[in-house]
């Protein structure tokens, strides 16, 4: 169990802090004390499952914005925000050709903040594709794929394709002319692949053209299949950053 420092201020502030942060229940939840001493600041990172993505200390060049432009973190932020807004949209969306488009219209007109959630989801999805590309370029031009980080670059390339696949599967769901024809064009492209193309197309569409089978397949992939796979690869990606000693640094 971590031993934490508990500096106590004088007066009413200190009394209030005592009541709020030093009682039995609070300390059963947050084991480190209030992070106003170096020791507690390290403990708060080390003992928190979310903050534990980070090391407790970091080289001072790495907090410079221009070193990374926060692009990897931004991509992760988009992924989380897309999960939240996506869950909101799922409450109102039925993936069937008869109902999907009507649901979208209802979302835009009848449901409070429905349009806002849909807009957020769409623009953040575009944002995520862009930030993934920019992140890849940042990693390349700072030479951060070099040993020992070779395989993490490969994981990153996999995550790039997963991001594109996530975006592509989501593109069909509004079931409007933009959706169905973009997916038709995309699937025709996949169908031209030598040997496996036609089979891939049939499996993904569940038929010869974009119809109800394709919609439910794209929906399932979009809301659970691909996010799970992406989450696994993201875990590997983040874990390996930590294991390889954080960001790349000049030798």
């Amino acid at each position: 169990m971590s031993v934490t420092e508990q500096p106590r201020g004088p007066g009413i502030g200190g009394w209030l802090a005592d009541k709020l942060f030093r009682n039995y229940i609070w300390r059963s939840i947050f084991r480190s004390g209030y992070p106003n001493t170096p020791r507690n600041q390290m403990l708060v990172v080390a003992t928190n499952v979310f903050l534990h993505l980070h090391p407790t200390r970091i080289h001072k060049t790495h907090v410079r914005i221009t070193h990374t432009y926060c692009l990897g973190g931004l991509t992760f932020f988009f992924f989380l925000s897309l999960t939240v807004t996506g869950v909101m949209l799922m409450f109102y969306y039925v993936p069937s050709p008869g109902q999907a488009y009507t649901d979208l219209q209802a979302l835009e007109t009848n449901i409070r903040f429905g349009m806002l959630m849909r807009n957020l989801h769409r623009w953040m999805a575009h944002g995520m594709v862009i930030s993934v590309f920019l992140h890849m370029m940042r990693v390349f031009y700072t030479g951060a794929y070099k040993p020992p980080r070779e395989f993490n670059w490969v994981v990153g390339v996999i995550l790039l394709t997963l991001t594109l696949a996530l975006s592509f599967t989501g593109y069909l769901l509004p079931w409007d002319q933009l959706a169905i024809w973009a997916v038709t064009v995309g699937m025709n492209m996949a169908g031209t692949a030598p040997i496996l193309g036609e089979d891939t197309r049939l499996i993904l569409l569940g038929g010869l053209e974009v119809g109800d089978a394709a919609l439910i397949r794209f929906y399932t992939l979009h809301v659970i299949g691909l996010p799970l796979i992406a989450a696994i690869f993201m875990a590997v990606h983040f874990w390996r950053i930590r294991r390889d000693g954080g960001l790349a640094r000049p030798l």
Binding site: P97, N119, A179
Partner: peptide
């Protein structure tokens, strides 16, 4: 800025041009 929503999907009407994402 609102996200686009065109007419209901219809495979009988091919938009010109039809573009991928």
């Amino acid at each position: 800025v609102d996200a686009p929503l065109l007419n209901r999907a219809n495979l009988d009407i091919t938009p010109n041009p039809s573009k991928a994402a």
